[in-house]
Design a protein around this nucleic acid. Structure first.
Length: 677
DNA sequence: GTAGGGTTAG
């Protein structure tokens, strides 16, 4: 382009700028580059009688800018100046129709083409086939295709692309068949569309045949075809075939790498994805988004955020897809500060705030207990779907706004938004946290009216609902009457309610049930043991505990303990002791209690999150029982928070279930039980 | 002097 500018300058200096040939070369080069299109406009103004070459250059050029509509203005200026359109004029103006996606414009141009006798021009009719397919009228494309006297491979491909564009996958495969009937050899372009159609229709036989076709007919495996093959192999879980395709491709580009990275993360092979990411010669926004998403899928949320920072440092602009993924990582971590930063970034950089971004923001704010901000985002959203409503209702339900949650559920139904399974989980949580037992049961019974089949999570919610209000017998009967075998989680919810209610008898019955199906889960022993402890039956409690071997040393800094609010407990630690031995699931219990204490500090988010951060530090040195964590998530026990290996998210609540909750800790010598003060 | 068809993320 510098050379063109130089040439332009010389023309002006030497007075040759009126020389039609030289000037048109300069104009054509300017026009072909969308960043220099304005220079083309200026040059055009200097030309008294632009010829068709110049008009064509302008039409082609402007179609590629963000003002493709202007192409019609140049097209309409052609005739009065005495220059006539040629076949290229039509090819270029049809591209402009495609850019603005207006079929009416295409039809109008089609009329001109017929009038001026260009329909029989192969490239022109191919362009027509393509524009009709692209603008949602594959029938019209077909009509041009059928009526045209001459066809080539591009005619077939254009028609096939039109069907593909309009999700007419079956027609794509039919046309491929028809091609073979006419002994036309397909090329890479055809095969890209055919393979995608097979993948959409999950026609694996047809797909294998198409791959065979490529081999038999020596179809060139170019970048597009290779990338497509990697993609669909990856989606189908045939990761080794995807890799082989990648390795055998004569040429690769950033899409090849991105596609294979996504195949790996989908297959759960994060290490391979990371290796590939590190090997990439260049990375675009999709590369970064894919690897960030890969870390999130592997639940490595901290690492996901680190990659996001690296992306910013590498000066790659994140888009709405990246940011939605980053917000989800923030939500998992309860990283409110980062989440707010992302929200700011979205506003300041006019990132397209689509429904995914809105939903992610709501989720992030709700997981950070910032319901007011979640509502603000909700109200700003132009379009809302089931996820939008459900996220907000769930956030309200577990953050002490149960009534508002139910009110919003009513509004959701009123707005004609279909509730989903998770919506009912949220609604049942709201009832549980508000003691609305009968209403909760009614909601549960109404699920089938919305064609939603309750699953184990819903059963868990109902058990939680009944047992939290002391209806342990009803909860037990409910479990007994289930038509499917109850998940251990469901029993465990009841068991922990027995503990809360000090109902040792039922706890023993439930534990017996639990040990039948889930004997290796240390959480079961802990719950029963602490139930005994709560009833001052220390011998039985100790026996259960020490009989279980899975012990692990964890390091507890006294300062950390104090900063965690542990002074609320009677710590049997020697004054200078800085470590103690803790059972896996006691470590879990410990975290639970501590976070509950944090959660009970009203209106002090900052304090709360500071503490949660420390809990994370603590957690890193311990082995927290992850199945217990899932139980917590499901049941909303212990102050409505969730803990798991890689995350701590803390939801504040007005209730404090801490009081009277026995905490089990241990000193160097022996297990000691301490009761909450 | 200017030409037509295809691939990746929630």
């Amino acid at each position: 382009m510098d050379a063109i500018k130089k040439l332009h300058g010389r023309l002006i200096v030497t007075g040759l700028y009126r020389d039609a040939y030289s000037v048109s070369r300069v104009l054509s080069s300017y026009a072909a580059s969308s960043s220099c299109f304005n220079d083309a406009r200026l040059v055009l103004h200097q030309i008294e009688q632009p010829n068709k070459f110049i008009w064509n250059s302008m039409i082609r050029g402007v179609s590629q800018t963000d003002q493709p509509r202007e192409a019609f203005s140049y097209y309409n200026q052609m005739r009065p100046t005495g220059s006539e359109q040629n076949h290229l004029t039509f090819i270029f103006i049809i591209k402009a129709c495609e850019r603005i996606r207006q079929i009416e414009a295409g039809k109008q141009i089609h009329g001109h083409i017929i009038k001026l006798g260009f329909v029989s021009h192969l490239f022109v009719s191919n362009a027509l086939i393509h524009v009709y397919g692209f603008c949602g009228a594959p029938e019209l494309a077909r009509k041009v295709f059928d009526e045209t006297p001459e066809r080539d491979l591009v005619s077939w491909n254009s028609l096939i692309c039109g069907y593909g564009q309009n999700n007419r996958m079956r027609d794509v495969l039919d046309l491929f068949e028809a091609m073979q009937g006419e002994s036309i050899i397909a090329d890479a372009v055809t095969l890209v569309k055919v393979l995608l159609a097979c993948s959409h229709l999950e026609e694996w036989n047809a797909m294998d045949k198409s791959v065979e076709y490529i081999r038999v007919n020596n179809v060139t495996m170019d970048i597009y075809l290779g990338n497509t093959l990697i993609d669909i192999c990856g989606r189908r879980g045939r990761i080794e075939l995807a890799r082989r395709t990648f390795d055998e491709m004569p040429e690769r580009n950033v899409v090849s790498y991105n596609t294979l990275i996504m195949s790996y993360t989908k297959a759960g092979d994060l290490a391979a994805a990371v290796n590939l990411f590190n090997e990439m010669p260049e990375r675009d926004v999709i590369s970064w988004s894919s690897i960030i998403d890969g870390y999130s899928q592997a639940k490595q949320f901290v690492r996901a955020l680190e990659l996001f920072y690296e992306m910013m440092v590498a000066d790659v602009q994140p888009d709405e897809i990246t940011l939605a993924s980053v917000l989800s990582a923030c939500a998992h971590l309860g990283a409110l500060d980062v989440g707010r930063g992302v929200h700011d970034y979205i506003r300041k950089n006019s990132i397209k705030a689509d429904i995914y971004i809105g939903n992610s923001l709501i989720n992030m704010y709700c997981k950070s207990a910032c319901i007011a901000e979640a509502v603000e985002v909700f109200e700003e959203m132009k379009e809302k779907d089931t996820v939008t409503w459900t996220s907000l209702i769930a956030g309200m339900a577990v953050n002490g706004f149960a009534n508002t949650a139910l009110e919003f559920f009513g509004k959701m139904l009123g707005a004609g938004i279909k509730p989903s399974g998770p919506t009912f989980i949220a609604v049942l949580h709201a009832c549980t946290h508000n003691g609305l037992v009968d209403e909760g049961v009614q909601y549960f019974n109404s699920m089938r009216e919305y064609h939603i089949e309750p699953d184990m999570k819903h059963y868990g919610c109902v058990v939680d609902l009944l047992s939290r209000s002391g209806k342990l017998n009803e909860a037990y009967d409910f479990i007994e009457k289930l038509l499917v075998p109850p998940d251990p989680v469901v029993w465990r919810i009841l068991l922990s309610a027995c503990k809360q209610n000090g109902n040792v008898e039922m706890a023993e019955i439930v534990t017996k049930e639990l040990l039948k199906t889930d004997p290796t889960n240390s959480g079961n022993y802990v719950l029963m043991s602490t139930t005994y402890a709560g009833a001052d039956r220390w011998d039985e409690s100790m026996k259960l505990m020490t009989g279980h071997k899975n012990q692990q040393a964890v390091y507890l800094d006294e300062k950390v303990l104090t900063s965690l609010g542990c002074e609320r407990y009677q710590w049997p630690l020697a004054p200078k002791a800085n470590r103690c031995c803790m059972h896996n699931s006691q470590a879990f219990d410990f975290v639970m209690n501590v976070v509950s204490v944090c959660a009970a500090v009203p209106n002090n988010n900052q304090l709360e999150f500071q503490k949660v951060k420390d809990v994370k530090l603590f957690q890193r040195n311990s082995c927290v029982n992850s199945s217990s964590c899932n139980d917590v998530k499901l049941s909303g026990l212990s102050g409505y928070m969730a803990v798991d290996m890689a995350e701590v998210s803390c939801w504040r609540t007005g209730l404090s279930s801490v009081k009277g909750y026995p905490s089990v800790i241990v000193n160097k010598e022996r297990w000691v039980f301490a009761k909450a003060v």
